[in-house]
Write a protein that binds this DNA or RNA. Structure first.
Lengths: 155, 155
DNA sequence: ATCAAACAAGACTAAAAAGTCTTTTTAATA
DNA sequence: TATTAAAAAGACTTTTTAGTCTTGTTTGAT
């Protein structure tokens, strides 16, 4: 039958957010090595469009997740002390807002425990679990295995 | 601080898919009452744009999830025997394809158990749980409490 | 002081998703 | 068999998301 896709790319995070998470991990990894990195390098390493990556990094700076140093020799970095403080949740909220955390799975405004949509009770534990994971996963967790070469950011 | 959203509406299902699920539940509920319903009625009841709803219903017909009867007195319906056979998974796949089921949370092509992205091991159980729930939740489950007035499709 | 190498900001463009409109096809019924 | 009420089909428009380009600002090094 093979009918082509109709609506698309429904995944947890927006594409922008995916780039943001990858970039943050890369910067943290370089920072843990004492190195500062620029947009060009980051975009190359995480395979993202360079000017768009610039935009996303700006946003991460405003959200206080990464630091930027302007001027010659500048770049982006994250102080190591912050690795355990920065959570996946922070990045996701900074980029995608909190729809993922709040929005009804069927798009209903009034959906709640008291007035649930037909999928509410099945969906709720899944989302709570996701929220907990995002809240509990720090940048330190993410880069640990990345630095040791057991996880990857390629393709 | 109040910086406005940057990237948006990241939830599990596309908006189109949300409408599709709501529409399917409504049609099933009417069918369980022996009633056939038309686009106008459906759009009104699930609060979705009428012509767009038509498009979505067409797609659900092609995917064999709902039946359509053309001509005067026609409309949409779902045979009751199918209520337990039709799963949330079927609707989601028909509309959103299988990105939600397969795609790496960070957008990496090559991510797998063998070559995981930094979030893979934390994400996998969440997704597996979601998949299981979508696989196990039938239309019969969804309309049971809806028909009894314990769940809602409003707003 | 000047220059060059960075990031910042904002206007702009492109692509994808969401939504509309018009015409055609179907089928019940008067 | 003409009418009418429905869905189907497909071209079209709008909005949102993704991505680009140009210009400005900052700052270290010469």
């Amino acid at each position: 039958m093979e009918l082509p896709n109709f609506a698309q790319i429904s995944t947890m995070f927006s594409k922008t957010c995916e780039y943001a998470i990858r970039a943050t991990i890369y910067i943290a990894s370089e920072s843990s090595d004492g190195k500062r990195c620029g947009i060009k390098e980051i975009a190359r390493k995480i395979e993202s469009p360079e000017p768009f990556t610039g935009k996303i990094l700006q946003r991460l700076v405003k959200a206080n997740i990464i630091h930027s140093i302007k001027g010659n020799g500048g770049g982006f970095e994250i102080p190591q002390e912050e690795f355990t403080k920065i959570k996946m949740e922070d990045i996701v909220r900074a980029i995608d807002g909190d729809d993922l955390f709040n929005r009804c799975s069927l798009g209903l405004h009034e959906c709640s425990d008291d007035q649930p949509c037909p999928f509410h009770h099945k969906y709720k534990p899944i989302r709570e679990n996701l929220k907990k994971t995002l809240r509990d996963t720090s940048l330190a967790d993410l880069i640990l295995k990345f630095n040791s070469g057991d996880t990857y950011l390629k393709l």
